[in-house]
Amino acid sequence: MRRCVTAAMLLLLSAAPAPAQDAAALTKAMVGQWELSTTERSRTCVVTLKPEAAAPGIQQGAQHGMKLELEPGCAAALPFTKDIAVWTVKGLDIVRLENSAGEAVIDFTEVESGIFEGLRANEGVYILQNLVAARSLAKSMDQMIGDWSMVRGSGRAVCGLTLTNNEAATADNFEAFLKPRCDSLVANFGPTMWRLERGALMLIAPSGEVWRFEADDNAQWRKTPDSADPLIMLRQ
């Protein structure tokens, strides 16, 4: 979901576990409640990672798996979670969710403090992050919904845009609509979807082209890479 985040995300991440220096530290930092989700949280599952070793009958193929709990709705939201029985840390920095035979269901690595990414073949990327931070991020996403104005650095308005919470045809994206009489550059780009990705706002065109915006210190969103005449999104 670049390693630059919004001011809100910086506050959230400051409360999350710092990157662990070794497997023991990472194991200790992971104990607690986490949200497992698709990249833009259209489907979520709460996972509680515990410090106790799993009973031998739970995990037959590995020796060091630890207990976990999945909330009741996990299997419906993320079907692969029905196979998850235990968790463990592999090597120095891999958080692994395993089945009862000790086989990996999904591996996560930390990409930002307290935010982990994992890839499942033919499915895509999933995010594991501190539950409190994740729920605060959800509020941030809600705050993005509504009308925006695109302006140049000079203050000249070039387009109006509405971000919605309607799920788009492409997974983990939401519908976006341009308003009439947009500048030709924006109109030709013609974004129809949006998402937040690790603190950045992504506008996506049907062609697959993506414009990336990052929040600055003035609560504005600036298109990156920056330019002498930046394109800025302002809340209406």
Results as ranks from 00 to 15, higher is better:
residue 3 R to D: 15
residue 7 A to H: 02
residue 8 A to R: 07
residue 11 L to C: 09
residue 13 L to E: 07
residue 13 L to P: 01
residue 17 P to N: 08
residue 18 A to H: 02
residue 20 A to I: 03
residue 22 D to R: 00
residue 25 A to V: 04
residue 27 T to R: 05
residue 29 A to M: 05
residue 29 A to W: 00
residue 30 M to Y: 01
residue 31 V to T: 09
residue 31 V to L: 02
residue 34 W to Q: 00
residue 35 E to G: 01
residue 36 L to V: 04
residue 37 S to P: 03
residue 39 T to L: 15
residue 42 S to L: 13
residue 46 V to D: 10
residue 55 A to C: 11
residue 60 Q to R: 15
residue 65 G to R: 07
residue 68 L to S: 02
residue 68 L to F: 06
residue 69 E to K: 10
residue 75 A to S: 10
residue 76 A to G: 01
residue 76 A to V: 05
residue 78 L to T: 00
residue 81 T to M: 03
residue 81 T to S: 03
residue 83 D to P: 00
residue 88 T to A: 12
residue 90 K to H: 12
residue 91 G to P: 01
residue 96 R to Q: 14
residue 98 E to R: 00
residue 101 A to H: 09
residue 103 E to V: 04
residue 104 A to I: 04
residue 105 V to N: 03
residue 109 T to S: 12
residue 109 T to G: 12
residue 112 E to D: 10
residue 113 S to N: 07
residue 114 G to K: 02
residue 114 G to P: 02
residue 114 G to D: 08
residue 115 I to C: 03
residue 116 F to D: 02
residue 116 F to T: 01
residue 117 E to L: 09
residue 119 L to F: 12
residue 120 R to S: 13
residue 121 A to E: 15
residue 124 G to D: 11
residue 125 V to D: 12
residue 126 Y to I: 08
residue 129 Q to Y: 03
residue 131 L to W: 00
residue 133 A to E: 04
residue 134 A to S: 15
residue 135 R to Y: 11
residue 136 S to D: 13
residue 138 A to T: 13
residue 139 K to G: 13
residue 139 K to N: 14
residue 141 M to P: 00
residue 148 W to H: 03
residue 149 S to E: 11
residue 151 V to G: 02
residue 153 G to C: 08
residue 153 G to R: 06
residue 153 G to T: 02
residue 153 G to M: 07
residue 155 G to Q: 10
residue 156 R to K: 10
residue 156 R to C: 05
residue 157 A to N: 04
residue 160 G to E: 05
residue 164 T to S: 15
residue 168 A to F: 05
residue 172 D to P: 00
residue 174 F to I: 05
residue 174 F to L: 14
residue 176 A to S: 13
residue 177 F to D: 09
residue 181 R to H: 14
residue 182 C to N: 10
residue 183 D to Q: 14
residue 184 S to L: 13
residue 186 V to I: 15
residue 188 N to V: 10
residue 188 N to H: 12
residue 190 G to M: 07
residue 190 G to Q: 04
residue 191 P to H: 12
residue 200 A to C: 09
residue 202 M to N: 07
residue 208 G to P: 03
residue 209 E to W: 00
residue 211 W to M: 08
residue 213 F to I: 04
residue 219 A to N: 14
residue 220 Q to M: 11
residue 232 I to R: 05
residue 234 L to N: 10
residue 235 R to D: 05
